[in-house]
């Protein structure tokens, strides 16, 4: 009778689970930088599943994460003193808050992933720590109904996790609040700068082209001689809207983003005008275009903020977009007229 069974191949389930380190390598840092500049953004995915950090056992906490590499990396970095499990759910490489809004970081997906990864066999307790911002997609009471796991909403920022756990899974009101400090706003600027590049180039090309306009037609040499001021107007508007407005967001005493941007554009274009000699009509024409650019790009920053509401942005767009189009159209028309008189 042959019953030589190879026991060396049987491993407890928990041993087969990939282990990750809490330390960041040079690659992780490089990835964080690349992501900020929008380089290779689609490669930033983690394979969904259950991971361990340290030496977790059946009593250890389970932290739920999105499969966006940067979210995962920030989480594991902040779990350096823990023995814990990380349950990564498939959000298609999108961060928790955004994925929760889209529904991929949601009740259904979390239930599926609890079942698929046999979480009930890995731990004996029935607690899951889900990032608070995941609450946009995860209904805690439904997870309880469907799986028996009690969802504990952790703090907004992974850096508060250790204090949160020490306090007996209690977050201070500060840990529950999303703020939008200067460095957070600054971090968002590179991607926006790169994001609009083609439209910027198109706008620059249009003013460059019309700079060469004359009663006799388009003159190539005139384009080169006179386009500096027009091009700088557009660039100033662009930087005012994309860089300065977000950085100085609370400084402008208006709430609407399009007005913050317009105000910022006005100030910087006024400064620009101080350095150049140009006919009044051309100054006004280019100022209008530049302010429209600043206002529009600033309005788009609503997409990156952490506090603008759908109703609010809709309301603002209703009056702001017609104004921006009007400013740009009148500006371009005046610019053309200034070339023909």
């Amino acid at each position: 009778m042959n019953n030589s069974f190879d026991y060396s191949n049987i491993k407890p389930l928990t041993l087969a689970i990939p282990s990750v380190s809490a330390k960041w390598t040079g690659n992780d840092f490089a990835n964080a930088v690349k992501v900020r500049w929008g380089i290779g953004r689609n490669n930033s995915k983690i394979t969904p599943g259950i991971y361990k950090i340290g030496n977790p056992n059946s009593q250890s906490d389970i932290f739920v994460s999105a499969n966006y590499k940067l979210s995962f990396d920030i989480l594991r970095k902040n779990l350096n003193a823990f023995d814990a499990w990380i349950l990564v759910i498939d959000t298609k490489g999108v961060n928790v808050w955004c994925a929760a809004g889209k529904g991929t970081f949601g009740t259904e997906n979390l239930v599926r992933s609890i079942n698929k990864n046999s979480i009930k066999d890995i731990v004996t307790h029935r607690r899951l720590i889900v990032p608070q911002l995941g609450a946009v997609g995860v209904a805690a009471y439904k997870i309880m109904e469907l799986t028996g796991f009690r969802v504990i909403f952790g703090p907004v920022r992974a850096s508060d996790i250790s204090e949160f756990v020490k306090a007996g899974y209690k977050a201070t009101p500060g840990m529950r609040r999303v703020d939008f400090p200067f460095y957070e706003r600054a971090k968002l600027i590179p991607v926006d700068l790169v994001y609009w590049k083609y439209r910027l180039i198109a706008a620059l090309f249009v003013v460059f082209l019309f700079s060469g306009l004359d009663r006799s037609g388009f003159l190539f040499s005139k384009m080169f001689q006179t386009s500096l001021f027009p091009v700088l107007n557009i660039l100033t508007g662009y930087f005012a809207g994309i860089v300065i407005t977000p950085l100085l967001l609370p400084v402008f005493p208006v709430r609407a983003f399009s007005l913050k941007g317009a105000l910022c554009g006005l100030i910087f274009i006024a400064i620009l005008n101080w350095f150049f000699i140009a006919p009044t009509i051309e100054r006004i024409a280019l100022g209008l275009i530049g302010i429209a650019v600043a206002s529009f790009t600033a309005l788009n920053f609503t997409g990156a903020t952490t506090y603008t509401s759908l109703s609010g942005v809709k309301l603002e767009m209703k009056w702001a977009i017609p104004f921006q189009i009007g400013f740009a159209a009148v500006g371009l028309l005046l610019f053309i007229i200034s070339k023909l008189i």
């Binding site: 953004r41 961060n95 999303v178 971090k187 968002l188 991607v191 997409g303 990156a304 952490t306």
Partner: peptide
């Protein structure tokens, strides 16, 4: 419905869209 084209990266790290 309003949809954001966010891929969850960069500008969308702490927020959506």
């Amino acid at each position: 419905e309003p949809t954001c084209g966010c891929t969850g990266t960069g500008a969308k790290e702490s927020s959506c869209c």
